[in-house]
């Protein structure tokens, strides 16, 4: 690789596949099929960038995030992070590596241990990784992290049930920051929060990114939040990326019929805009990833589908600079 380091992406995902076996039988287990949760995904994330990964449930966006965290070992493909392939890394090498990539989960109720105090929750990863062996310094760091995330440092002595959803999500963010990570996988970090609290957490994530030079992979189904936060966005459908572009071109001139359907389905909080538009929702439901349609996986629901779409799987093409679409009918 002869390119200068500065233009090198921090994360490169190439041909990522994650197939889960489907088994039947209790005594004699036999594999009867597989769920292709992620089926050939390629994208890059530049240092300091926020990359959005959007799609409906079952599209494989969370599984992609879990592969990058190596909570799953991918079936195939490469995940190159800062020159090293995480996809094939062994457990010992991973241990040191995990500090650099952290995660913020969706549900702030189930992702915090109810029997641990907030201070213990945030201090534990530092203890495990030996980042701050001194207990006194560790507690000082916990208080610093709490106030960094907009919480009162005294919350260290509280339990999760004493806090609201928004406060718990801030604890989850503080725990991720405790490792001084470079990269954070944010898996639906605001979807479980009330509307008035979502904006607070979105602003916090942005402030922290600027302050600590973080890079985010932002996994979400709420397209409005993604538009606000992300510089680039990839749209997934049934385990594949169907469209990827910088946020403004994706939202202002979407090309793939699925992206268009997805954007049209989101109602705008403005009755005048809504009354003035002729809206027809896309028909049908997402097919089972165990038995995906032949050819283009979107063809059964696609208003533009022609005969060829049923046979031939469209390969991603770069239609405009930086704008990639996997649809043969788009010119």
């Amino acid at each position: 690789m002869s390119e200068p380091v500065s233009t090198e992406p921090l994360l490169t995902v190439r041909g990522l596949r994650m197939h889960f076996p489907v088994t039947e039988g209790i005594i004699r287990r036999r594999v009867t099929g597989e769920v292709k949760a992620v089926d050939g995904v390629d994208f890059t994330v530049a240092r300091g960038e926020t990359m959005g990964l959007v799609g409906e449930s079952g599209c494989g966006k969370t599984t992609t995030g879990r592969c990058i965290l190596r909570l799953e070992k991918p079936t195939a493909g490469d995940i190159i992070y800062d020159g090293q392939n995480i996809a094939t890394m062994d457990t010992a090498a991973l241990r040191g590596f995990r500090q650099r990539i952290q995660v913020i989960f969706q549900d702030p109720y189930s992702s915090l241990n109810p029997r641990m105090k907030i201070g213990e929750i945030i201090a534990e990863p530092m203890y495990v990784h030996g980042i701050e062996p001194d207990a006194g310094k560790r507690n000082a760091r916990v208080k610093e992290l709490l106030s960094e995330c907009g919480l009162n440092p005294n919350f260290a002595d509280r339990y999760p049930h004493e806090m609201s959803g928004g406060q718990r999500q801030r604890v989850g963010i503080a725990r991720a920051l405790a490792m001084n990570p470079e990269f954070i996988v944010c898996d639906e970090p605001v979807s479980a929060l009330d509307v008035s609290i979502q904006a607070q957490v979105v602003n916090l994530l942005e402030d922290l990114r600027e302050k600590f030079g973080l890079t985010y992979l932002f996994i979400a189904h709420d397209l409005s939040v993604v538009r606000h936060l992300c510089q680039r966005v990839a749209v997934m459908y049934l385990g594949r990326i169907v469209e990827m572009a910088d946020a403004d071109s994706l939202f202002d001139s979407p090309l793939h019929p699925y992206t268009r359907a997805l954007l049209a389905a989101v109602p705008t909080p403005d009755p005048t805009v809504e009354r003035g538009r002729d809206f027809r929702p896309v028909q049908g439901e997402v097919p089972s990833p165990m038995n995906p349609p032949s050819g283009c996986v979107f063809h059964p629901r696609c208003p533009m589908a022609v005969e060829r779409c049923k046979q031939q799987r469209p390969e991603p093409r770069e239609i405009r600079p930086g704008h990639i679409v996997a649809c043969d009918e788009v010119r």
Binding site: V195, S196, I197, Q198, A199, Q200, V202, N203, E206, L223, S224, V225, R227, H228, A247, D248, F251, D252, L263, V266, T268, P269, D270, V273
Partner: peptide, 15 residues
């Protein structure tokens, strides 16, 4: 406080 899909990104949300 709600971000909007039909508007380009603004500096910060106003929560």
């Amino acid at each position: 406080s709600v971000p909007r899909l039909d508007r380009p990104r603004q500096a910060r949300l106003d929560p």
